[in-house]
Design a protein around this nucleic acid. Structure first.
Length: 546
DNA sequence: ATTGCTAAAAGG
């Protein structure tokens, strides 16, 4: 008898303790699952309430959002700050009295960079057309979608295929991007509320190309300072280079809060017991844990450690803290995804953030590669207007102003800082030193290998359970071999070194929610294979019965 | 644009 697959019953296919790839369902069942997928009509979730009970500011909704200056919540006495506006602008302006700053609208300078969105062929012909495109277009995905003047690769680009690479390719072919679903829009709102708990966004109206990128770097610097001062930051932008390709990501949350004391204790105990210490041993090592020991031992190699601690002591009286990466995932249902294939994108996402963050803290990211990719001149000085705007708004919190001994380097007033780092190269260097200050190389990794996915409801499920309520948490380890193998495989796809791979039959439930299921060549191939195997089995049975 | 688009990510 075939297992009936409904949207509420995906656990039938991927029970919590199932391995990623192991399956005990037979081919006949798999075939019926694949067939059923296309019968599933999309159900409008009319029962979902709106999340209006979360106060959502709407004024920063549009295209200026990304070039907003990010202020920590401590820096909100803006009115008094703005009073000095004219004065500071005059000071900055005097430096280059003659050189008029060029004002360029943000969307004008960037329009050409964005991937073209193909629109308006009829629904019916589109899928067929795309199939033809996929066959005839011999360019690699990276050539087609992520080559200048289009945007560089993102973490999303690298982890989305972990759900279904074939689906991602169809999306890129058809739209040049992923189209936001209702669920995603709801998720964005929850994220936005969380971010505004930590930062206040102030619009910066017009900037040059270099200014615009400088502001992004400045926001990251600000995010790191917020993290050190408040023990929490959200939406931290990071850059990296992977196999020569620029990769950009936004880390949802970093904080000093340990997600799981027990896992942390087991982890540290595991590391200590290697040095001969007897005692409680972690019996059943999780897949990531063996490599974790390697991670710990490799990072505490030498006597440089002592020097670093002493050096840091002069800046940071308290001992270096451990920071934990977290990603918040909103869900339409109140259930958690299974730990196997359904969680793969999240696992890879957090592990990739860990890698990017670590390489920035180690100053391993070639800044020139990043700037070149964006077509930016790393030595052009920022415009007076830009420097003045940042200087006007970004004032150090009053607490640290009183006591200048306690000021970290570069924590002086923003005008001084920006004048001293008034090109992209210089500001990048400052950013790197902020990364190094925040995540120094110490015995206990300052970037914890404990990674957290925190699941929240996208919308209210009851009066006591409003939108954004926490459903549950999954904590797992950074696992270098896993993420490295994944990235190698994914980059091979992006570079066109291997063909697109869709979901395995065990993951056919994904097809039920996929717009491309009907015309999916991968899926058709799998259905045909299922039929063939079923037929072979039937024939085999027939013979043996004679 | 009846919500479009942009930055990544947003979810399944």
């Amino acid at each position: 008898m075939a297992i009936s697959l409904s949207q509420n019953d995906t656990s039938t296919v991927t029970p919590d303790n199932a391995s990623d790839y192991g399956s005990d369902i037979d081919d006949e069942t798999a075939f019926s699952l694949l067939s059923q997928a296309e019968l599933q009509a999309p159900v409008e979730p009319s029962f979902l309430a709106s999340i209006e009970d979360i106060p959502i500011p709407v004024e920063h909704e549009s295209l200026e959002q990304r070039i907003h200056l990010r202020l920590s919540r401590l820096q909100q006495s803006l009115d008094s700050v703005r009073e000095s506006s004219a004065r500071i602008e005059a000071i900055v302006g005097a430096r280059r009295a003659q050189e008029a700053s060029v004002e360029i609208e943000y969307d004008e300078i960037n329009r050409g960079q964005f991937s073209p969105v193909r629109q308006d062929e009829s629904q019916a012909t589109q899928t067929q057309q795309e199939e033809v495109d996929l066959k005839t277009d011999t360019r690699s995905p990276i050539e087609r979608w992520r080559t200048k003047p289009k945007k560089p690769l993102s973490v999303t680009d690298l982890v989305s295929p972990a759900w279904c690479e074939q689906q991602y390719e169809y999306n890129l072919s058809k739209y040049g991007r992923i189209r936001a679903t209702k669920a995603m829009k709801e998720g964005s709102k929850v994220h936005k509320v969380l971010e505004e708990q930590v930062h206040t966004a102030v619009p910066v109206e017009t900037v040059s190309k270099e200014d615009a990128f400088g502001l992004r770097i400045w926001n990251t610097i600000e995010g790191l300072r917020t993290l050190r001062e408040d023990g929490l930051t959200r939406e931290l932008e990071v850059w990296g280079v992977l196999q020569g390709e620029v990769v950009i990501g936004i880390i949802d949350e970093i904080s000093t809060t340990c997600p799981d004391e027990q896992m942390e204790a087991d982890m540290l105990d595991g590391g200590a017991s290697k040095g001969g210490k007897k005692g409680k041993k972690v019996e059943q090592l999780a897949p990531g844990q063996q490599t974790l020991t390697d991670f710990l031992t490799s990072s505490q190699t030498n006597g440089l450690l002592q020097n670093d601690s002493a050096f840091l002591g002069t800046l940071h009286p308290e001992k270096p803290r451990t920071y934990y990466l977290k990603d918040i995932k909103t869900r339409q249902s109140r259930t958690l995804p299974g730990p196997g294939a359904a969680s793969r994108p999240t696992h890879m996402q957090l592990m990739l953030y860990h890698r990017l963050l670590t390489s920035l803290a180690a100053n391993e990211v070639p800044a020139d590669t990043v700037f070149t990719r964006y077509g930016l001149d790393p030595h052009t000085t920022f415009s007076d207007k830009f420097i003045a705007e940042i200087a006007n708004l970004n004032v150090p919190p009053p607490t640290s102003q009183n006591d200048s001994e306690a000021l970290e380097p570069g924590r002086e007033d923003p005008l001084t800082v920006l004048l001293a780092h008034n090109t992209l190269t210089a500001l990048w260097t400052l950013m790197i030193s902020e990364f190094q200050l925040t995540f120094p190389p110490t015995t206990s990794p300052s970037i914890s290998p404990l990674l957290t996915a925190s699941f929240r409801t996208a919308s209210a499920h009851s009066a006591t359970e409003p939108a954004g309520s926490i459903i549950g948490t999954r904590v797992f380890f950074f696992d270098p071999p896993i993420i490295n193998a994944y990235l190698r495989s994914e980059m091979a796809w992006w570079k066109g070194e291997r063909a697109t791979v869709g979901v395995e039959v065990e993951e056919a439930y994904k097809c039920a929610r996929c717009d491309f299921a009907e015309g999916c060549t991968w899926r058709r191939g799998r259905v045909e294979e299922g039929l063939r195997k079923a037929r072979l089995r039937r024939e085999g049975r027939g013979r043996s019965e004679v």
